[in-house]
């Protein structure tokens, strides 16, 4: 990915980091009057792009060939090392771990607990709608055959959603229920792509099972 250039120092909000013509703004920074300022209390990281950025994706529009900003080192201010707590807002494409709080025939309501590698302090609410549970045979999906309240689910954020919810999807093999508890109160283990089994009672229950890594 990126190599740290070793210049680490502490920045406070509002601290001047450098001119915007020399650096690219990373997380925790902002630009004002063509200067780069810190917007967080944290450690400054400068990183060089590891490889010359080729046209990684197909050009969809003609751009004026300016000095490509990607050649500039990116300055970012990170909270790691400053505080254990760093709240992040789930973004589209993030993989999250969440707990199912309630289910309806149309959707499962979940509380997002972990976003990427970050353990969240706040509880953001998410929705897995019935059409986002599986990639195939969507019309046959039943929420109660996929999730139960209390299950831990690995899912992907597909939309920032409405005022209260993030929209999540489990429509990939590695996404779905990763921890489930049986009706008898025992932890279960996955048997196949749609079943978990209680080791004590031997009964199996239906879930949208995540393929183990």
């Amino acid at each position: 990915m990126a190599t740290s250039s070793g210049t680490t120092s502490i920045a406070t909000p509002g601290q001047l980091l450098g001119p915007a013509s020399k650096f690219q703004p990373g997380p925790g920074t902002h630009i004002h009057n063509s200067n780069l300022y810190s917007s967080l209390l944290g450690v400054v990281h400068a990183s060089q792009p590891a490889k010359p950025p080729g046209p990684s994706k197909r050009l969809t529009k003609i751009t004026v060939p300016t000095q490509t900003p990607a050649e500039l080192p990116t300055l970012s201010v990170s909270r790691t090392g400053v505080s254990e707590k760093r709240e992040v807002l789930p973004e589209v494409g993030n993989t999250v771990l969440c707990r199912v709080t309630r289910i309806t025939p149309r959707q499962a309501v979940v509380a997002i607990l972990i976003c990427g590698d970050t353990v969240l302090e706040a509880e953001w609410q998410g929705l897995i709608r019935v059409q986002d549970v599986r990639a195939t045979e969507k019309d046959k999906v039943k929420i109660y055959e996929s999730f139960r309240p209390g299950d831990i689910v690995r899912a992907e954020v597909i939309s920032l959603g409405d005022q209260a919810n993030f929209y999540l999807s489990t429509a990939r093999n590695e996404l779905g229920v990763i921890l489930a508890t049986s009706e008898a109160g025992n932890n279960m283990y996955p048997v196949n792509w749609k079943e978990y089994m209680d080791p004590e009672t031997g009964l199996s229950e239906l879930r949208k099972v995540a393929k183990p890594y």
């Binding site: 771990l97 707990r99 607990l113 972990i114 590698d117 353990v119 969240l120 831990i152 990763i178 921890l179 932890n187 279960m188 283990y189 996955p190 183990p212 890594y213």
Partner: peptide, 21 residues
């Protein structure tokens, strides 16, 4: 199940299933 939960980092495990942790 014990097996999959072991693979999580401590903080994640604590958040996901505090009781077994």
């Amino acid at each position: 199940m014990a097996a999959p939960s072991m693979s999580f980092p401590r903080a994640v495990f604590a958040k996901l299933s505090p009781h077994p942790y």
